[in-house]
Amino acid sequence: MAPLLAVRDLRQRFDVSGSIFDRLRIRNGRITAPRRIVHAVNGVSFEIARGEVLGLVGESGCGKSTLAKTVIKLHEPTGGAIALDGEDITQHDFHRMRPIRKKMQMIFQDPYASLNPRQRVRDIVMEPYLENAAGPVPDVAERALALLAKVGLGREHADRYPHQFSGGQRQRIGIARALSVGPDLIIADEPVSALDVSIQAQILNLMMDLKDEFGFSYLFITHDLSVVRHISDRIGVMYLGFMVETGPKDAIFENPLHPYTQALLAAAPVLGTPLPPAADAIKGEVPSALNLPTGCPFRTRCPLAFDRCAVERPELKPVAGGHSVACHLHDGGIAAA
């Protein structure tokens, strides 16, 4: 069966150079106007099957959020292709995107900024549905209450405004809004990272219960390794706009192949274990996306980098059992680690 979402070689660049006057520079006696291009997503490919949860992990600036927003066309992609349910939506304009909105929805990170403070909860949760309805909807009120009930909110909440809710409740409202059109795919961009630990567990449980009930898929973006391990079927690890490793959850956590994945797993604090010694840690910080390193994006911090890493960019190649890695160390399909 064709995958629900297929993303091929997706690229997203932003020109942050501003107007011509901001760009003017005098260099060596000559006037130039260099452009500043942020290479946010650099040729990422992945697929999501029906009912599957793909977790995307990476640190800030790795392009995972941009990737999510490009997939749902909040940004126009610079290159590559996005296909939902076999339909290529890469070039879809506003009108051709309308039927797609019913199939793909999003849950946002910030429970405070993602709800319009001047809208009542019943109007917030029904907005996508009403905007995409073919004709008049006679049972708006009942539908709104039914949606709220699905996320554990009651009739008494429907007429309130967002500021009367806690962070966790707001996130429930955001989930109800995404559910309203009955989507096949929900893109969740750090949906629990702004919440307290005890509330995180509630929201993660709710999201998994809803998935089991409705059978949709998640593209789940997070920086939190324990969350991604809990919720995902498959995991993609991103670094500097590149997908450096993908694979089934257990393969990634038990047999990480990319040095970055290994470092990320080593750095994550684990309850009741001592601080990992400095030798395990990768040095330095993420380079600027304005000026990508040649060759492998991770080579500037990689403890195992060698000559080839500086000249040739490694491609994401399958090693075994749906596990792929973009690293010259694993070029020959040697999965005997």
Partner: peptide
């Protein structure tokens, strides 16, 4: 800049 505007775009509002 806030996410509720993005949510409105995702909802398909003109």
């Amino acid at each position: 800049q806030k996410e509720y505007i993005q949510a409105a775009r995702v909802s398909g509002l003109p």
